[in-house]
Design a protein around this nucleic acid. Structure first.
Length: 506
RNA sequence: GCUCGCAUCGUCUAAUGGUUAGGACACCAGGUUUUCAUCCUGGCAAUCGGGGUUCGAUUCCCCGUGCGAGUACCA
């Protein structure tokens, strides 16, 4: 016997994202949601959100809300699900327990499932023995042969039990995956999966099949971790007499060190990217490109571009490495396209989403600038916008203004200059600064004055401006030396320049 | 261990039974720029290994290797 599941007949495309509220939404999970959303919208279909809260032990209160906030941040809207409702509800599995019980009973009645009273301890020992003998761990069907009387008596005794799916022992099932093509699995390799747990909740396997069918999902788009259990799901569709949806199993994100992307190598939670100052459009653009591309040389995709161009047939089967370099670049590109006003608004919105130490830094930063004249603010924002990769980066300027960081003296020397040249230039700049009255120590006056003065020397701009800027900020990248000088004030500016000269003379 | 999958520059990827194997990020060099950044130009850099099939394989097949997923009363 070979079960082959066929393509769905043409009906309105309906996809779903079904996270479990057991923690933060992972960036990889966010991409799964994105692709499911894109495919639905590409086909003018529906995208639904379903809460798979069937594991009461691992459930983290509030995580469902947080996951939804992440999706909203990315611009992914669900047509049905929590908060919006819909005709196929409830969309929380814990509110659908009767439905699962009813379907488990159908399987029990038809002989496709059976009660199992084995204790966790017995199962544990069994698996250990099997592994010791280098056999694949598999339920030994100890309870399959229980008589009706035995079952009745155990139930009367209130013995804890689960419901297991009785898999065929012969034949194979062919899974048609949109990414990998046809995959064959032997029934004999598939375990008798638990369908109903002893606490009355269904497992994922039963719940997802029942719900996907009842909610008329046409295309199941989910993570690769589900691929090995898809044969069980297809078998369930078959014994229920239902048509199975199409299956698309997405790759997992790897970290640069290899292995699944994990917290150890950087942030993995979607909202952590917001706290770092990434724009949702950059995160969407970057994640879409991990595993999908339209076979052209385009790099920039807005959500609506993606909806238009996305296709399941253009997905890759290999696991991509998630690296922030290109994300940073995309983010900087999106930032540059914004007006100064939009940038300032982004910074303010950003402030509301960052907590802790970084939140304090960004708040201080904004407060600090609010003391400056409007025009000054604008010019500094504008200058920052061009050199910011992530919104959080702007605080480094504030830190530098408050306290000059440690730096190596060699960095004061411009690439086309020498140490002696830097000393001479800095010394000359100090003299120039000292001649300016404090109240005239502003960009509009010192900038033209210094530039005119440089023309009268044998130096080029770089010979003077690089060491000056570096001495004032201690940074390779920062706003212009004139902007820094004005904000720091004459005394502090001179102090920092003198310090630089001392460092060079050491 | 067993089942399943994947394999092109460091990374994301394109392409083809015959190509100088293309693009992007990163990196390096030059240029523009009031320094840096931006921007422009150029450069470095890849078909995992071994067998087949073929006039010809990076491409198709097999094996190996590496990597990944699964192997729960978790999803």
């Amino acid at each position: 016997m070979t079960t082959q599941h066929t393509d769905t007949i043409s009906r309105k495309v309906r996809t779903r994202f079904a996270p479990s509220p057991t923690g933060s939404l992972h960036i990889g999970g966010a991409r799964t949601a994105l692709f499911a959303y894109l495919w639905a919208k590409h086909n003018n279909g529906d995208f639904l959100l379903r809460v798979e809260d069937t594991d009461k032990v691992r459930e983290v209160p509030g995580s469902g809300e947080e996951q939804r906030e992440g999706l909203r941040w990315l611009g992914i809207q669900w047509d049905e699900g929590p908060e919006v409702g819909g005709e196929y509800g409830p969309y929380k599995q814990s509110e659908r327990l009767d439905i699962y019980k009813e379907h488990a009973q159908i399987l029990l009645d038809s002989g496709h499932a059976y009660y199992c009273f084995c204790t966790p301890e017995r199962l544990d020992h069994m698996r250990r023995d099997q592994q010791a003998q280098k056999l694949p761990p598999r339920y030994d069907r100890h309870c399959l042969t229980l008589s009706a009387e035995e079952i009745a008596s155990k139930q009367a005794n209130n013995e804890k039990h689960v419901v297991r799916l009785k898999m065929p022992t012969e034949g194979a099932v062919v899974v048609r995956d949109m990414v990998r093509g046809e995959l064959t699995f032997q029934y004999k390799d598939i375990d008798d999966q638990v369908l109903m747990k002893s606490d009355g909740y269904p497992t994922y396997h039963l719940a997802n099949v029942v719900d996907d069918h009842l909610m008329e999902i046409t295309d199941v788009i989910r993570g690769e971790e589900w691929l090995p259990s898809t044969p069980k799901h297809i078998y369930l569709y078959e014994v229920f007499g239902w048509q199975a949806p199409s299956f698309t199993h997405l790759t997992v994100f790897l970290s640069k060190k290899g292995g699944k992307m994990s917290k150890r190598d950087g942030e993995t939670a979607l909202l952590a990217f917001r706290s770092l100052g990434y724009l949702p459009e950059a995160v969407v653009n970057y994640s879409a490109l991990l595993g999908w591309n339209p076979k052209t040389e385009e790099e920039f995709f807005s959500m609506s571009d993606l909806i238009e161009k996305f296709d399941l047939s253009m997905l890759n089967a290999g696991n991509p490495v998630f690296e922030t370099e290109k994300l940073d670049w995309l983010n900087a590109q999106y930032l540059k396209k914004k007006s100064v006003q939009e940038f300032i608004e982004d910074i303010h919105t950003f402030k509301n989403h960052v907590t802790g130490e970084n939140g304090d830094k960004i708040s201080e930063f904004i407060e600090y600038f609010e003391f400056l004249p409007i025009q000054k603010q604008e010019s500094i924002w504008s200058s920052l916008k061009e050199r910011t990769k992530k919104l959080l980066d702007v605080v480094s300027v504030n830190e530098v203004l408050a306290e000059l960081p440690e730096y190596d003296a060699e960095l004061l020397v411009w690439k086309k200059s020498t140490k002696e040249g830097a000393i001479a230039a800095l010394t000359a700049v100090i003299e120039q600064f000292k001649t300016v009255e404090s109240e005239h120590f502003i960009v509009s006056e010192i900038q033209p004055a210094i530039l005119d003065w440089i023309k009268t020397t044998e130096w080029g701009n770089g010979d003077v401006l690089w060491p000056t800027r570096f001495a004032l900020s201690g940074l390779a990248q920062s706003p212009s030396p004139f902007e820094l000088a004005e904000i720091l004030g004459r005394e502090e500016s001179v102090r920092r320049l003198e310090l630089a000269v001392q460092k060079l003379q050491r």
